[in-house]
Design a protein around this nucleic acid. Structure first.
Lengths: 111, 111
DNA sequence: TTATTATGTAATCGAATGGTTACAAATATA
DNA sequence: TATATTTGTAACCATTCGATTACATAATAA
C-alpha cells in the first residue's frame, strides 16, 4: 500500500482535518463532530495522516489528542520549489538541472 | 469523478511525467518510452494531467506534443503557504486566521 | 494505394479507497 | 460496581484507480 505525503493530502477530508489541527490540537471525537461522515471513517483518515507523520497523537487517558506536524509537509514544498522557477519564466537557467534521468524526482517506483 | 491538482500529483508516475515535461515538450510516445508501463496507461495519465490543466497538448499532425503548465500547480503552493508560517514556529500570529470554519480551505465538499 | 506510425478508447481486471455498521476494550464517572 | 465515554478494529460494500489487451482511427511514408 502506497503511503506518502502526496497521497495523504490528496483527499479533501484529510486536508480539512489538517486545517482544523493547524490552529489547535483536538481529540478524535471533536474532529469527527465537525464532519458528516462517521467517526470510524475519521479514525481511518487520522491513522493515515499519522502514518505519514503529518500529525502526532498523544494519548491522554481514554482520549487521543492530535497535533499537526505541518513541517512534514516539507516534501511537497520541496517538490514544488524545484519547479517554481519555471512558472516564473526563468526557464533556461535551470533547464539542465532537470536534464537528469526522468522519474528520479522521488524515491518511489514508477508503478 | 473528483479531479483536482492534489489528486493529480498524488500518483508517482504522474509526478514523473510532470518532471519530464518540465524541461522540454514531448509527444506521447516519447513519454511512454521512458516508462515500463503500457502506452495506454500513460495516455490516461496524460489525460488526467491535461484535465487539471497541468499540461497543454498541442496537436501537430498525428502527434500530440505535451507541454507542462507548471504555474497551475499554484493551488498546491497556496495551500502549503498558508501553513508555512506554522512550521517556522510563528504560531500565534496567524492562529486566528485559521479560526475560520473548518473545511473551508478548498472549494471541494468534504466527502 | 498500402503500409507504418501515433494515438484514442472500449472492455476488463485486481487492488486500493472511502465509507458503513457492529462490536470490543479501556478509561472515567455516578 | 455499573454505566457512560472515547476510541480501535473487523467485516463488509460500492466505487475508483491503475493497469492490461485488443481494436479503431487519423496522418504520414513508401
Amino acid at each position: 500500500m502506497r503511503r506518502d505525503v502526496f497521497q495523504a493530502i490528496a483527499d479533501p477530508t484529510r486536508r480539512a482535518i489538517i486545517h482544523m489541527l493547524a490552529s489547535k490540537p483536538m481529540n478524535l471525537n471533536a474532529i469527527a463532530e465537525q464532519f458528516s461522515i462517521s467517526r470510524p471513517a475519521i479514525s481511518k483518515h487520522i491513522k493515515i495522516l499519522a502514518e505519514c507523520d503529518i500529525l502526532h497523537i498523544r494519548q491522554q487517558g481514554r482520549e487521543r489528542f492530535c497535533t499537526s506536524k505541518l513541517e512534514n509537509l516539507q516534501p511537497v514544498k520541496d517538490w514544488l520549489t524545484q519547479y517554481e522557477i519555471f512558472w516564473n519564466q526563468k526557464l533556461d537557467a535551470l533547464a539542465q538541472h532537470l536534464e537528469a534521468p526522468p522519474g528520479n524526482d522521488n524515491k518511489e517506483s514508477q508503478s
